[in-house]
C-alpha cells in the first residue's frame, strides 16, 4: 500500500493506493494515528487507488473515526471504487462515514 499525504486548508489528505487488507491495515492505522497525535483533527482519505478492502481495513477506519470523534475531529472519505462502495454499503459504513465523490467536494464539506 502506497500512502501519500498533503495538507490543504488545515485538512490532512491521505491518498491510498493498493490493497487495504490485513497486511496493509496496520501501516495505514499507524500513519493516521501519528498524524492525529501531532494534532490533526480533519482527515480526508482519498480511496481512488483502493480496488480492494477487507474487514481489516474497515476496522482501521472505524477505530480512527472513533478516536477523532472523541477529540472533536472528523474523518471523511472520497472516490470509492464500486467494490469498496459495496463493502461499505453492506457493512453499514455509508451511514457512519461522510463519503464524497471527489476530493474537492469533500474539502468543501469540512
Amino acid at each position: 500500500m502506497q500512502i501519500s499525504r498533503k495538507e490543504e486548508k488545515g485538512i490532512h489528505i491521505f491518498s491510498l493506493d493498493g490493497r487495504f487488507d490485513a497486511h496493509s491495515a496496520g501501516d495505514v492505522e499507524k500513519e493516521l494515528n501519528l498524524t492525529i497525535s501531532k494534532g490533526a483533527r480533519k482527515l480526508l482519505l482519498d480511496m481512488d487507488g483502493v480496488e480492494y478492502i477487507s474487514s481489516a481495513g474497515l476496522r482501521v477506519l472505524l477505530a480512527v473515526a472513533k478516536k477523532l470523534k472523541k477529540k472533536e475531529g472528523e474523518i471523511k472519505l472520497c472516490s470509492l471504487k464500486p467494490y469498496v462502495k459495496e463493502v461499505f454499503d453492506i457493512a453499514g459504513f455509508t451511514q457512519i462515514f461522510k463519503v464524497h465523490n471527489t476530493t474537492e467536494e469533500a474539502i468543501q464539506g469540512f
Binding site: 472513533k66 457493512a91 457512519i96
Partner: peptide, 14 residues
C-alpha cells in the same frame, strides 16, 4: 450494524 459512530463496535465484520 448500528449507524451511530459512538455505539458502533469495532470489529466483528469479517
Amino acid at each position: 450494524l448500528v449507524s451511530c459512530l459512538k455505539e458502533r463496535k469495532v470489529g466483528g465484520l469479517g
